[in-house]
Amino acid sequence: MKNFNGKILFLDRSDINTDEIIPAKYLTELTKEALKPYCLEDLKLDSFDSKKDLAEKTAIVTRENFGCGSSREHAPWALEENGINIVIATNFARIFRQNMFNNGMMAIELPAEQIDEIFKKFAGTDATLAVDFDKSEIKISNNKDSFTTNYTLGLFYSDLVKVGGWIDYVDTKY
């Protein structure tokens, strides 16, 4: 399984699309590694600096409809290349969510009120995420607060995360 624990990048906006996560002009790259420097380059978010803000982060917490737009799997790949294997949001665009799990990454949906609470408590601080996969539990904490909640993944998505993605899953089944 991939690593899901570490520092959180907070993106306080809904409808962050895949063009913002990785612009189309980089879709000519033939390797995933080449995408690394361009991740979130076109993100429309005040005072966001992709290079500085992405550094050392391993998780993203954001709002609604993350990953809408293009089907490009380059979006999760660009995140993965930057060390981010988990995104927590109110909901995801279908293709992006599937692309995450197809790569053994996690797209976790939490109710809007919980996302709100997480933003209120932790955005702008050095917050970290810890995932207990067996208990379906995530814990977010900083030096003064902590927040724990359960998520639901279901058998299929759990299996994809465990085996590392859809290709390996399919190999054993169909």
Binding site: S71, R72, E73, I95, Q98, N99, N102, W166, I167, V170
Partner: peptide, 10 residues
Amino acid sequence: AGVGTTDLEV
């Protein structure tokens, strides 16, 4: 339906 590269590959 649109899919990503992994779904396409499978």
